[in-house]
Every structure is written in C-alpha cells, then in structure tokens.
Design a binder for these strands. Structure first.
Lengths: 210, 210
DNA sequence: CTAATAAAGTAACAAAAGTTACAGAGCCTC
DNA sequence: GAGGCTCTGTAACTTTTGTTACTTTATTAG
C-alpha cells in the first residue's frame, strides 16, 4: 500500500506521515458507476484517491443534480468533509467514474496531521485551492455559458478523465450531469455531430476534435 | 486594534496569536462601493473582516459578473488567496457592501500559524468550509432556480447583510450581480411588488416580507 | 425653472431551453 | 424472428430569458 500511496501522491510525504496514513487509512475499492459512501466507523472522513476517478455531484431536494468536478489520482475532496459536517440537508454525491481505489482517512487525523506535517499542510491547502477553483469553473460554466458550450466542455472533460475518445455514456446520463433534459442533449449532440466534432452511437460517443 | 479583533472574532484566539496578528496585519478601510484590492507589499494576502461587509463577485473575460457571497464580521476569504495564487486570468472582485474595516494578513503567515496555533487551524478550516458551502448554495441558485427565485434570494440576503429593509440598489446593479439584464430585473421586481412583497422606488427598494 | 441625466416602466420581438409525444433503431431473450 | 426493452431522433409547442427600442419619471446642475 505504501508504494501505491507514493505513486499516487507525486510529492513525497514525510516517511512518518506515510506510515501514519497507511496505518490509519482504510483501503477501499469502487467499480465504475458505484456510489461511494462514507460508511462504517469512518463516518466523517476524507478520501485519498490512489487510482481511478470519481465524479462529484450536487443534488437538490427535488433530485435534480449537477456535476461539480472529477477527482483523480492524488486528489482529495474537502467537500465530502464540508458536506458531512454541515447540518444542511443538501447533498453531495460521489460516483466512481472508473474502477477506483482510495483510502478513507478520518477527519480528526486530517486536522492532527496539519499541525504535525508540513507536507500534509501544503497538500490540504492545495486541495482546498483546487476544489475552490474547480467550483469556480463550474460556476463560470452554468452562469456564463450556453448549454452547447457546456456540453462541449463536458465531453472534453470526460474524454480527458477517461483517457479515451470513446465515451461510454447515454444522452440521458449527460442530461443528468448537466441538469437538463435528454431531448435538449440529443438535439445539441446532433448539432455537434453535424459539425464533425463527434460521432454518435448507441451507448457511446466517439470524440473527434472538440 | 486588539479589542476590535477580539470583538470581531467570536471565539478567542490564543493571546500570542492575537499579538502576532496585530503585529503583522495591516489595518485597512473601505467605503461602501469601493473595490478592495490587494496592493502594496501584501500582494498575496487574506482579509480578516473586523466590521462591515464585503461582497465577492466572479468575473469572466467578457466582463460578465456574478455575485458569489457576502463576507461579514469574523469572516475571511480563502478565494482571494486561491485567485491570487492561480495563474488563471479569471478574476474575483471584492466590493465593500458597507463601510468596512479589515486586516490584511500575508499568506505566508496564514500557513505558518496553521502549524503553531490550534485556534487558527480551526478558524482556517471553518472558513474554507463556509466558503465552500456558500459556493454550493450559489451553484444551487444558478443551476436549480429560476430568475424570480434567485431575485428573491438576492433581496433576502441583501436585506440581511445590511440589516435593513431599505435596499439602496438600482435595478441595473441587481442585474449585474445576477448576471442578467436590467429589463428582466425590472419585470420581475414589478411582479414581486404586485404580490405585495416589496415596494419599488427610485434608487431603493423597500422589502416587506419575502 | 429648465435642461440634462439617470433610473425605471413597458411593449414587442428573438433566442434558448424545457416539455410532450411519438416513431424508429439497436439489442437481448425466448 | 417476435416481443420487449432501452436508447435515440425529431417535430411541435410552451416557457423563460434576453434584446431592442422607446417612454415616463425622478433627481440634479446650471
């Protein structure tokens, strides 16, 4: 596990810290499409992604939802934390985008290590930073862009995170992620296909050049 | 300054920390409407609000803008930081909502104190938490709500932050904050007035019950 | 008081997005 | 290959939001 941890986390944590993480962290796996939940004794915890990718969604009371961002190797997500702590009913969902392995670490440790390890401190700060930036980019998208632009951005991000031009996704799933309706997505995808940027198939989309 | 600091920051920082803050921090003032900039030698710094309120806006390249949230007494804003550090051209703007006094503290100290003081560590974590939560609420608004609901939310928040039912604001300013056009806002405000929730006047709006 | 200016009201229209309804295409199972 | 299921295509229509253009009202400067 130490090797995976060092591989996933580009910069080197102090050896002692690595030991603490491997000692405290609980290794978990999720298959593509699985909802990731924060269960058992690690009720309030933070994931450290070792391999794979996770998508983070916002949900409202009427079960509308919106893709916020993806997490990949080396990332952690302060939001799961933020969301667990807050009493607000409003929810965040995490779904494995690919087969994913990750470590769950309890919040208490996150705080403790912040005092003890400079590398951890930097890491946590940078994570917060990244998440905030990604949230801002999501806000830019929904506030300033039309649906056609948002859709292109979505296809682009999805191709990147999956390192593949073949996106295994239905129009309905895209519609969920962008909080719109399937018909709207089909309409816009067709337009993009006519522009020669993608090829549409049943259950998958071939991305040409976006 | 120590008194203001302790007044503004409900929970008590360690005495030593208070000393450090008052020693390092630069006290600043902004009048309502002033743009707050991070100038002189504190190029990358974080504001601690002592009194008043500040609104934080997101701006895109075409000078569209969108209100993200308000900061008030006791708040700090990780975003100014996030924004300064990132090389992205995309901008955050901070404008004094009322006459405001605040302390500017350089980022280096923020990190340093995180290691030294538990109270500061908690404070910074909670701040990040709050900002993330507010960003999520903003996302909820623009992703899941129609403009009429967003407008009601805006009026509500604005009345609350200014502790007044008399909102000194023009339709055009609201339109800027919500990234829409003046005509749209006028139209919806009129509708809300007819419903008896507000009274419209030149340059101000009287909030009745929202 | 008058002219100039900024703010607000309103109509008419355009564009974007959401909705409903249905047809057809691909795929699986029996 | 018949029936059933999911996914996609598309038309027709509604709603929401954005745009343009012009009028009216309030406020200020001269």
């Amino acid at each position: 596990m130490i090797k995976e941890l060092e591989e996933a986390y580009g910069f080197i944590f102090e050896k002692e810290l690595i030991k603490e993480i491997t000692h405290t962290g609980v290794l978990k796996f999720a298959k593509a499409g699985d909802t990731i939940m924060d269960i058992d004794d690690y009720i309030i915890s933070v994931p450290l992604i070792l391999e794979g990718a996770i998508k983070i969604l916002r949900e409202d009371d009427d079960s509308n939802e919106l893709l916020l961002y993806f997490l990949e190797q080396g990332d952690t997500c302060a939001l799961t934390l933020s969301c667990c702590l807050g009493q607000t009913r409003s929810e965040i969902r995490a779904i494995a985008e690919k087969d994913t392995s990750f470590l769950m670490v309890p919040i208490s440790k996150v705080e403790e290590w912040t005092a003890k390890y400079k590398s951890w401190r930097n890491y946590v700060f940078e994570s917060y930073q990244s998440r905030l930036t990604e949230m801002l980019e999501t806000i830019d998208a929904i506030a300033f862009m039309n649906m056609d632009q948002r859709l292109l951005r979505y296809l682009h991000d999805k191709a990147k995170i999956n390192q593949s031009e073949e996106l295994q996704v239905t129009h309905q799933q895209i519609a969920y992620d962008l909080n719109t309706s399937r018909v709207v997505i089909s309409r816009l995808l067709k337009k993009i296909e006519i522009e020669g940027k993608i090829f549409l198939h049943r259950n998958y989309i071939l991305v040409q050049d976006l």
